[in-house]
């Protein structure tokens, strides 16, 4: 396709170039095997789709019947709630753990490391089973001085339901991963930023919240998007708690009643795919937004706008600097505020 474009150039762009060489017009290299493989793959895909559409076991009739079933769409809502709540808690905990790991206090650092070691080192499914047994292990929650009569004693089952156990279970696991993401983000910020803020008399907390974290966000956001997508799918494991009002649990419960598991697996899959697709699109735009400004071109250096400045009067003596119209860098600045 580019051949035709090239052949046109010597004619159009040669005002004085009589000796300009003719553009190369070669026979393109053929890739016969590439075509063969492509045909085979497409054929297999078509075969699979045609076969699947007619195959009895997929139960497309039931798929159509349940895809927009109210119970399923409610379950989808629970899946979203589980994802959002557990991610919010995981991010807050993750930031805390990341800061703890970067602390100079060896005990604080050690505790954070221990937490990460346990929660990253055991499967999330196993952790969720443990959370399901929480009320069995700790039947009452007591507040008071240890080894004395508690001031307040609450039945664990009255305090917390399986939904929140699921949220906590997912959040505590996820926070270990978020901690590492946040830590990488904080470490990516130039040490000079910290020093500059410190030299200005800013406290550690001010330095962190005003200078370091805002810059770390650019590194933190993309992998966090991945974690959200991953979390959406991991919610299917809360059946271990057991909490079964979310997408996978609900579709499985329905399939048990109608003795037809396959179409409901397809229903659940379709919903998961819908959500992950939306999140992937969202993440694409988020990443685009946060990568903006990384490779910002610096303005052409003029070197002419330097004024000789006298601090007592505050007057700028160079006329062209005073006019304020000399510098090309005002253009990109203007764009920044679009």
């Amino acid at each position: 396709m580019s051949d035709s474009g090239r052949s046109a150039t010597p004619v159009s762009v040669s005002p004085n170039g009589a000796d300009q060489a003719e553009a190369i017009k070669a026979i393109r290299l053929r890739h016969p095997w590439r075509n063969v493989v492509a045909v085979i793959l497409v054929a297999m895909l078509v075969l699979f789709v045609v076969d699947a559409s007619q195959r009895e076991a997929y139960g497309w009739e039931n798929f159509g019947k349940f895809i927009f079933d109210k119970r399923i769409s409610q379950a989808a809502g629970y899946t979203l709630l589980l994802t959002v709540y557990s991610m919010i808690i995981a991010i807050i905990l993750g930031v805390t753990l990341a800061v703890m790991r970067l602390s100079d206090n060896p005990v604080v650092k050690g505790i954070a490391w221990l937490y990460l070691w346990v929660f990253r080192g055991t499967p999330v499914y196993v952790q969720l089973v443990f959370w399901g047994l929480f009320a069995t292990i700790y039947s009452t929650i007591d507040i008071g001085v240890p080894f004395t009569e508690p001031w307040l004693s609450v039945e664990t089952n009255d305090l917390i339901n399986v939904f929140w156990l699921a949220v906590i279970g997912l959040a505590l696991n996820e926070s270990a991963y978020m901690a590492e993401i946040v830590r990488a983000g904080i470490l990516s910020v130039d040490k000079g930023q910290d020093e500059a803020a410190t030299a200005l008399g800013m406290s550690w907390l001010q330095t962190m919240t005003r200078v370091v974290i805002p810059q770390a966000m650019r590194i933190i956001i993309p992998p966090t998007g991945n974690e959200v997508i991953s979390m959406l799918k991991t919610t299917s494991l809360v059946t271990a708690i057991p909490f079964s009002l979310e997408l996978y649990g609900r579709s499985r419960d329905i399939s048990v009643v109608i003795f037809d598991p396959i179409p409901l697996l397809l229903v659940a899959s379709a919903w998961y795919l819908l959500f992950t697709s939306i999140l992937m699109v969202g993440q694409y735009f988020l990443e685009k937004r946060f990568s903006r400004g990384v490779g910002q071109a610096r303005p052409e250096k003029t070197g002419t706008e330097t004024g000789v400045i006298t601090l007592k009067t505050g007057a700028i003596q160079t006329p062209d600097a005073a006019s304020g119209t000399d510098d090309p860098s005002t253009d990109p600045t203007g764009k920044e505020h679009q």
Binding site: G293, E305, G307, G314, I316, S329, T330, T333, E336
Partner: peptide, 21 residues
Amino acid sequence: LARVGLADKEDAYPAHLSGGQ
């Protein structure tokens, strides 16, 4: 900013300024 001769640059981000600025 006026004292350092950059009165017109108050809304510029560092990446849009030369090293000297």
